[in-house]
Design a protein around this nucleic acid. Structure first.
Lengths: 258, 258
DNA sequence: AACCACAGGATTGGATATCAATCAATGAGA
DNA sequence: TCTCATTGATTGATATCCAATCCTGTGGTT
């Protein structure tokens, strides 16, 4: 239904947020066109979409690369995300009906069960999804799209950073946010959202390659073939350990919750 | 410096927010490629950028059209804009230094002088710019871009709607918002931002063609030639009166302030 | 050895021609 | 008048070609 360049942009986006394509990775037109069996022009259109989304940067006559956000930009992205979610929280605290609160609680409960079952990969996905569900309940598609874009960019950031905090402290944040909001305690809820994001950002150390660099051909291989758009195996199971020794304060786990 | 498709996307964006290209207007690839003397491919890339920005919509095998947002979407855009500006207001009320407040006051003063001088066109531009300056002071480029996109879309909306309120009531809103924020009275300021936008939306009646439809060739003519990107004459001076009689409650002035 | 200049290769940005797929309008026939 | 098929126009996409630019490697110079 959609154009082919959109489909390719979607695949590239997926590969980037799956950390299979890491920041700085060259996205050559010829190489991608051979991988996807399309013409260079279609690839170029896809890259334009990625660049507009902030996931790639195009340098004239040099080509496209997976975006490598600066520390400054990383902070700005998290600030923007906080701003959006705080605003949505304020709207929901006034307008959300019982069914909405129930949906949020149900989502938190599913995540809790995943954590209890030790399924970190599922917990991680649910943890991310919570924010998306949260914004969806505002019933504002424009806001949803803005938020989704910001989330994609934060996911990209995680290819570049090393979190040295204990993520277990964040596990209950979602639940507490829902509690506070439903009770109408907006200000504490907004502060908690801020703290939720700040605690993720605080220990960030950039200029490290957290994920191993794959060639585009290897990185994109799982998404091809089927054409069904089926989810490739979660990276948390196929993740490759890099050769370098772990440094102090460097953890290799994925975040179970943001 | 930038690619040609970006330059063309910029021109089309400009033409749309100047209301020279009205919603629903067909943006044929062949026609545009002849107008700009570029190939269809460059035009297509420009149209992709516009579509990503929400200013155009591309229908498969049918082509691109200037976006015609629904009433629902119009409300969502204004809600999102309110959310963003309220969030920025909250940040500024904590973090903005004296120089920042001075810049805002200076801007308001310039607009006041323009109104006093009867220069409605300049006042309109300054009124729009206020919101941009406001967000720029947050020093968050990511947020700035999101906000700028929302502003562009609200500008597009004004091609579709007829305001039947007395815009004089809004003239002092900017000034009062600055006053309240500088005094640390955040809540009233946020309420005023909300009211500011709501008062614009309230009387909106869609499904009217406020601006006359021009062919793309006529609409884009002022932007070509010079290649200097110079501002074409403001529409408020070249605006053409449509043949149809004014209906009750239908004003043809441009907004002096949002 | 270090440094600079230049040539060649590789890649991107873009133009043109061409073809297939799809939509819309037109017109023939019941 | 209504229905259906054909035709024309437009888009989506490809292949090929060319110019501009960047990177690199070589070679000469200090």
């Amino acid at each position: 239904m959609s154009s082919r360049s959109q489909a390719i942009a979607d695949i590239l986006t997926r590969a980037i947020i799956d950390h299979r394509l890491v920041p700085g990775c060259k996205l050559g037109e010829r190489e991608l066109s051979e991988i996807f069996h399309v013409s260079r022009i279609v690839v170029r259109q896809a890259l334009i979409r990625l660049a507009d989304d902030g996931l790639a940067q195009i340098e004239r006559n040099r080509g496209a690369f997976v975006a490598r956000p600066s520390m400054q930009e990383a902070m700005e992205i998290y600030d923007a995300l906080t701003l959006v979610e705080q605003g949505v929280a304020a709207q929901l605290s006034e307008r959300l009906g019982p069914a909405g609160w129930a949906e949020l609680r149900q989502h938190v409960e599913r995540q809790r069960q995943a954590v209890a079952a030790g399924n970190d990969a599922l917990a991680d996905v649910l943890g991310q999804e919570f924010h998306t569900v949260f914004v969806r309940l505002s019933r504002n598609k424009v806001m949803q799209e803005i938020h989704a874009q910001l989330v994609r960019r934060t996911t990209l950031l995680r290819s570049l950073i090393t979190a040295d905090f204990d993520y277990c402290n964040l596990l209950d944040d979602h639940s507490r946010i829902v509690d506070l909001l439903e009770k109408g305690r907006l200000k504490p809820a907004m502060d908690l959202i801020d703290a939720h994001h700040r605690s993720v950002v605080r220990g960030y150390i950039m200029d490290r390659q957290v994920f191993p660099e794959l060639t585009p051909r290897d990185a994109l291989e799982p998404y091809l073939d089927g054409k069904t758009g089926e989810a490739p195996k979660s990276l948390s199971q196929t993740q490759i350990k890099t050769g370098e020794k772990d440094e102090p304060g460097m953890h290799r786990h994925v975040h179970a919750s943001r």
